[in-house]
Amino acid sequence: MTLEIRNLHAVIKATDQEILSGIDLTIPNGEIHAIMGPNGTGKSTLAQTIMGYPAYQITAGTIRFDGQDVLQRSVDQRAKLGLFLGMQYPAEISGVNNADFLRAAMHATTPDNPISVLEFMQQLENNMNYLEMDDEIAERYLNVGFSGGEKKRNEILQMMMLQPKLAILDEIDSGLDIDALKVVAKGINHLRSEKFSSLLITHYERLLEYVVPDVVHIMVAGKIVKSGGPQLAQQLEQTGYHKFEVTREFS
């Protein structure tokens, strides 16, 4: 279950502006990688492109997951391959009950192995307790009127219920206080195993203190400019991104 991205170029459909300028990234099975980088550098675009957000167009390169061509697949087919994207700004969907939605999603991703209502309720309760979520969140409309923290926890809840093979978490730490951050980290660590890999996208090193990554990548202006171990994140915290921006100009 390796994610392999080769020479990926992507533009915004509406303006033709290039955002990704040749990404190369490999995430082997069971590893957690983090991508860090300044604002507007294309981190979220990379996340959305892997999932298939329609506003971006791929102009070159490939994405393969478990040997399968990801780019040939629709958004829902990518989810069925085992990809998951915890979104920075989850959509609010009125009239759709959160628990009903989760059950429909579980059914859609594992149609051959339908979960019973009882089993579903138990799993939901356990996971919500684990993430310290209010019971009523299950019965509310999907993300409607949720606080920032509730939305992020709800994304993690979905991840725990759907058990993807690879979870991309786009700024899952933004807008969270320290207690909420710990809870979210707990949820990610809970899934950590040789069958689960993850790509964390973040500005700050703080999340990586709680979810220690195997590899850290630094992304600047649509390219990955440096990769290293977890200490790279700490190093960044001290030096900032400036050094890497200069590096890129000469590369």
Binding site: P54, S74, V75
Partner: peptide
């Protein structure tokens, strides 16, 4: 997009 990213057609 959000719903499809969770596997719904």
């Amino acid at each position: 997009y959000y719903l499809m990213s969770r596997g719904l057609s």
